[in-house]
């Protein structure tokens, strides 16, 4: 069987998810032995930018018309498109300001009379093109990435985590930052897979992986309010990484 052709791309984001792939150091030789990586600007200056791809891995959000055009072009040359990281899956921090006046925001950042920048409200990939698979995380987890590639190579759909950070946090026997310390912890709404890395270090979950399926934000907001948090602080925390994923 010939190796699947792969392209790895970044739209608007920090490139952290592509970096995680390069950081899979002990697995990199295995990965390139199994995948025919044709187009990966972060790793190579010689790329085939037009070839057909079996798998496109795309990180970042769509925040410019240029991003949207690139994404469409990637979609057209790919059999399967994978959204890589929270920005690609949910919009991420770039989507924080969705719903606000774009022109006013541009003025605020660049000053009045700035040139006409190519800037549109940030969108997740699935809002622009059909997405076949999501690998969330800020950044993605190495293990989840490698497991996803292993599953895809076998023609399987990688297993999606369908429970909240609290589950992993309890498994690790951390003292609950929400119930015991009254902190603004988003663990109950956030999809697991990170091993509750932040609560393990006594840092409240900020929800960087995006919401879990069936997240009950309305109920958690009531708990936060009862604990005396201001509505704007709660809203700011919940909107940071996946503004359209929480409705309350």
């Amino acid at each position: 069987m010939s190796k699947p052709t792969v392209g790895i791309f970044g739209l608007t984001g920090c490139a952290g998810d592509q970096l995680v792939i390069l950081n899979c150091e002990d697995r990199l030789m295995d990965i390139v032995a199994l995948l025919d990586v044709r187009d990966f600007l972060m790793a190579s200056s010689e790329n085939d930018t037009a070839c057909q791809l079996d798998i496109a891995l795309v990180e970042g959000a769509v925040t410019t018309r240029r991003d949207a055009a690139r994404l469409l072009a990637i979609r057209q040359r790919s059999k399967a498109l994978v959204a890589l990281g929270t920005c690609a899956v949910w919009g991420g921090v770039a989507a924080l300001d969705r719903g606000q006046d774009r022109a006013r925001l541009l003025d605020e950042v660049y000053g009045e009379g700035h040139p006409d920048y190519d800037s549109i409200p940030a969108q997740a990939l699935h809002e622009v093109v059909p997405v076949d698979l999501n690998i969330t995380g800020c950044p993605i987890e190495k293990e989840e990435f490698v497991a996803a590639i292993a599953a895809l190579l076998n023609g399987d759909v990688p297993l999606a985590v369908e429970y909240a950070v609290c589950t992993e946090c309890r498994m690790r026997e951390n003292n609950c930052l929400l119930t015991e310390r009254g902190e603004l912890c988003c663990g109950p709404l956030t999809v697991a897979g990170c091993g509750a890395r932040c609560p393990e270090l006594r840092i409240a979950c900020v929800g960087c992986r995006g919401p879990v399926d069936d997240a009950n934000s309305a109920s958690l907001v009531k708990v936060f309010e009862a604990r005396g948090f201001a509505p704007q602080d709660i809203a700011a925390r919940l909107r940071t990484f996946a503004p359209q994923g929480v409705t309350s």
Binding site: A164, C166, T167, R170, M171, P188, V212, N216, S219
Partner: peptide, 13 residues
Amino acid sequence: GARCLSCGSCSMV
């Protein structure tokens, strides 16, 4: 059901 967060804490502990 409206209150439960489905966080799984009760089952883990």
